[in-house]
Amino acid sequence: MSQILSIARPDSVRSVRLDTDRGTFAAFTAAPPAPRGTALLVPGFNGSKEDFLPLLPGLAEAGYRVVAIDQRGQYETGPASKAPSYAPDDLASDVTALAGVLGPVHLVGHSYGGLVSRLAVLNSPSAAETWASLTLLNFGPAAVSESTRERLRLLLDALRTTPVPDLWPFLRPEDGGVSEEVLSFLSDRWARNAPEALRLAAEQMITEPDRTEALRGCGIPLSVVFGTPEETWPEREAAAMARKLGARYTEIMGGGHSPNVYEPEAVIEALTSFWNA
């Protein structure tokens, strides 16, 4: 689960809704007067655009227009359109549709958002015309670790008989340092998840194949940014994936699964130095 310490929205960050030919998506955006490029940030499992709030002002100050979204089935986006499908390939098509509205983008996918972003690139007929680059943030080459698979199997079992909101007491963070305001937000965000979106995402993370070889030939610049310590994917697997891809690799010690929250300045530096290059 993505982690959040604050939901305070800086004055430079605007809340918007983005219309595409695949539906309407809730987003945060920040931009300098004359941006040198655009970045699209895709959250992970049970995540949302709020996961990227610590990054948005700094990325804009570095010269980039940044857009962070709620994926289909998440928080304020909801179903996005009539008769929605939450299959990974359809979520990837959503990301591609957003790029069609925003122009060529530096694509950043966190955790399950990395899985979706990788699919978006692989499914693009001409990746270089749509994507300026791809960064995988705390995402590994294939299925999640065995301990994470076990937790996802337990969640899948629970989803068969229990409404999503009723599962919150079992998922509520135990860290006493999380404010009541953030806990209230996390509870509300969890309750708004589409059950089918959670189910399909969990199943995909359990079974995802290694697509490293296919991605290596995509023809766009690639980077991997990985916070440690990490339990969802082993760090050694992410580092090996980066080597096989010929991608820039940045380890962010102390960032854990959500370096965008715990070490945002290091993530901003990793992203902007890669984009600038």
Rank of each mutant, 00 (worst) to 15 (best):
E230F: 05
N260K: 01
P229G: 03
P165I: 08
A87W: 04
R9D: 00
L53F: 09
L40V: 12
F45A: 04
K244V: 04
V105H: 07
S85E: 03
P88S: 13
F170K: 15
L222P: 02
E203I: 08
A242Q: 12
F139E: 14
T162K: 08
A31T: 12
G109Y: 06
E213W: 14
G109W: 00
I252T: 02
L152V: 05
A31G: 07
L155M: 15
G63T: 09
L5A: 11
D89G: 13
T232M: 14
V13M: 09
I4C: 02
T162A: 10
A214F: 11
R118C: 01
A143N: 13
E237D: 12
P104W: 01
A242K: 04
D70V: 09
L18Q: 08
T162H: 10
S85F: 04
A191D: 03
A87G: 11
A194N: 05
V224A: 14
A277E: 15
P32A: 14
R243W: 09
I4F: 12
A194S: 12
G73L: 06
R9L: 01
Q71S: 10
E180N: 09
N276I: 03
L159Q: 13
I206V: 14
G23E: 05
P234A: 14
N276K: 11
P84C: 06
E174G: 15
R22T: 06
A30P: 05
K244F: 03
L115G: 12
T38C: 11
L154E: 15
N123R: 15
E196H: 03
R14H: 14
L56H: 04
R236F: 14
G219H: 10
F52A: 05
Q71I: 00
A120G: 14
A31I: 03
L18Y: 04
A202Y: 01
T20M: 00
G63Q: 07
T162R: 11
L53P: 03
E76M: 03
D89R: 14
P125G: 10
A158S: 09
W131I: 04
P209F: 13
A266E: 15
S273Q: 07
A62L: 08
A197K: 02
A132L: 12
G114F: 13
E203W: 01
S187Y: 02
G63K: 11
T228V: 15
W190D: 00
A39T: 09
A194I: 00
E150P: 02
D70G: 14
V182I: 08
A8W: 02
W233P: 06
A240L: 01
P163A: 07
A120F: 11
L102D: 05
G219E: 12
L171C: 13
A92R: 00
P54C: 08
V42W: 04
S111R: 05
G255A: 02
R243G: 08
M1E: 10
P104L: 06
A99R: 01
V105W: 14
